[in-house]
């Protein structure tokens, strides 16, 4: 069955998108202990910013991407200031609800500004699909996979090899001690939000050429990214990547061989199974109680 490798490549492509959003989710979770339920709206906003740059401002593709990503950086900063920062000393619940509210706000602001019609981006590279050993490959999926892999590598180098990366890691592990040794925690959190919004924007720009996206696309992506982080092991970067790729492949295969209408359900069923059997995920954050 020559369709199988093709399905897997497409699955990895979509899975890379989940993984990118999941990475942003994990970074924010690690620095703030908050799960951002509006994370899925980051790719949506990024994709629409690019649509506006290309079709309304008439910019060239490369300039549009730069402007859209810069816009995402600003968006991430504002998001932190308005949604997270005022609630930083409260329990997880108000912050969680606040991000849900922010998601409704963002989606409907875009809706009011742009309208309900779905949009699509032109391909990033003007290449046609080609055959490799009987397998048809869509270059867009390859672009997604290559860019995602490059970003993951870059992020790894940043966190492991730079002093700033270490400072952010320290902030994520213990905010109070980080501030005690002179790390400006407030800025580290700000930086995390900015970076994670840009990451989301990249995901949106990558996914734009392969699907028509609409205002609500973020919710589905966010939920799957969230599922990916739990499957991979909450708070673990490797887990987020593995979980995202795994989900992308599973739902593509499920849709092809089992049922198209229930495509979205596969991700949730896998998640459910994990929560029941292995709630700490593959790379396992230990859920320990302390008296």
């Amino acid at each position: 069955m020559s369709a199988l490798p093709q399905l897997i490549v497409a699955g990895i492509g979509m899975g890379s998108i989940y993984a990118l959003v999941a990475l942003g989710l994990v970074l924010i979770y690690r620095t703030t202990n908050v799960v951002n339920f509006a994370q899925g709206d980051f790719p949506m906003v990024g994709a629409f910013l690019l649509v506006i740059c290309l079709f309304h401002a008439g910019m060239p593709y490369w300039a549009g991407i730069l402007v859209a990503l810069a816009g995402m950086a600003v968006f991430g900063g504002l998001f932190n200031l308005a949604v997270y920062y005022p609630l930083r000393n409260r329990s997880y619940l108000p912050v969680l609800i606040s991000t849900l509210g922010a998601s409704i706000f963002v989606q409907n602001t875009v809706l009011a500004a742009y309208g309900p019609q779905p949009a699509n981006l032109p391909p990033l590279l003007p290449l046609r699909g080609f055959q490799v050993g009987g397998v048809f490959l869509d270059p867009q999926y390859l672009v997604i996979i290559v860019v995602s892999a490059a970003l993951v590598l870059l992020q790894y180098l940043f966190f492991e090899k730079t002093y700033l990366g270490k400072k952010i890691q320290a902030t994520a592990q213990d905010k109070e001690t980080a501030s005690l040794i002179g790390i400006p925690v407030r800025w580290m959190i700000m930086l995390t939000f900015v970076y994670s919004a840009v990451l989301g924007g990249v995901a949106g720009i990558l996914v734009g050429p392969i699907m028509y996206f609409s205002i609500g696309m973020g919710t589905a992506i966010a939920l799957k990214a969230f599922a990916a982080t739990i499957i991979g092991g909450f708070g673990d970067i490797r887990g987020a990547i593995l979980g995202g790729l795994g989900l992308g492949i599973i739902e593509n295969l499920g849709a092809a061989y089992i049922s198209v209408p229930y495509k979205d359900a596969f991700a949730f069923l896998v998640l459910f199974a994990f929560l029941m059997v292995l709630p700490q995920g593959i790379f396992g954050e230990k859920i320990a109680e302390k008296a």
């Binding site: 609800i97 706000f105 009011a112």
Partner: peptide, 17 residues
């Protein structure tokens, strides 16, 4: 009209804060 839901979302955030 169409900004109603956006106002609603913002209201949720403000209530929490």
């Amino acid at each position: 009209k169409e900004v109603y839901l956006a106002v609603y979302g913002a209201a949720v955030v403000l209530i929490m804060i």
